[in-house]
Design a protein around this nucleic acid. Structure first.
Length: 250
DNA sequence: CGAGTTTGACCCGCGC
DNA sequence: GCGCGGGTCAAACTCG
């Protein structure tokens, strides 16, 4: 392999990586919008349930076996169980920051991607977040990043964990990414050619081009349409298959 | 020694 | 009615 080709490949790899990241984000946004629509439909046709549940995904070190999610509240573990659908144990916590607080939390490693744990909150806190505890957790939780389910945006530690979050299997994005990798779209082709046209040897210029292109992609309605189609496809397969996710790193 | 965690046993709901 | 699986309890254990 000669070095100009190698450099070109490296640039393309970098570009594709950025592309995938952007598509991932767009996909998550669209999926969130879709789920919102669906939940609105359901809300119209169903009697709302009294108990409030929400789910958050927390990125953690896969080697870290502890199921401790620092979210500003104080939890007491009262049980652990291995469930049928997931070989990783599920831990049960009760909030004991205030006497009589009914909130419970279930924490389990994501079966598809062990670098994530899924924390399911049930009930509503009858007290505020202890800011000192939250601060402590902020400073000590550098090994975990709490993400809102759909967007991957860091979860606001001092906010209400029971904001109307949307339960979304983040791992879907992985399958989508794979799908897109297997079936490169015109968008990708356009991108690779456009980066060729750039013919930039300087990394800075190349990165600038990438950023510009990513920015233009985000604004591109055609790209959105293509992504929407991919989302629709993914949702169709999701409903027909028991487990749509194909792990990326296996 | 007290607070918190672990873990096996028990309970309960659900599907067959 | 029975078996299975998820959720909870509580005694035993660990750690500071």
């Amino acid at each position: 392999m000669d070095s100009p080709n190698y450099d070109k490949q490296k640039r393309e790899n970098k570009s594709l990586g950025l592309m995938l990241e952007t598509m991932n984000k767009k996909y998550n946004m669209l999926h969130q919008a879709y789920l919102l629509q669906e939940s609105n439909k359901r809300r119209r046709s169903e009697v709302p349930t009294a108990s409030k549940t929400s789910q958050v995904f927390v990125k953690m070190d896969p080697r870290d076996q502890s199921l401790i999610v620092k979210d500003g509240f104080q939890w007491r573990k009262y049980g652990q169980k291995v469930t049928k659908d997931n070989p990783s144990p599920r831990a049960y916590f009760k909030c004991f920051m205030a006497p009589g607080c009914p909130v419970k939390k279930k924490v389990q490693r994501c079966v598809e991607d062990k670098s994530y744990v899924v924390a399911t909150y049930e009930g509503q806190h009858n007290h505020d977040v202890d800011s000192t505890a939250a601060g402590k957790s902020l400073s000590s939780s550098c090994n975990s990043q709490i993400l809102s389910p759909a967007t991957g945006i860091p979860f606001p530690l001092l906010g209400d964990p029971f904001r109307p979050t949307i339960t979304l299997d983040l791992t879907l994005s992985g399958s989508d990414v794979l799908q897109n990798r297997r079936n490169p779209s015109n968008v990708m082709h356009d991108y690779s050619t456009s980066s060729d046209h750039g013919n930039n040897n300087s990394n800075n210029n190349n990165n600038k081009n990438i950023e510009d292109y990513v920015a233009s992609l985000i604004k591109d309605p055609n790209f959105t349409l293509a992504l929407a189609a991919a989302v629709a496809r993914s949702i169709k397969t999701e409903t027909s298959k028991p487990s749509p996710f194909t792990p990326m790193n296996k």
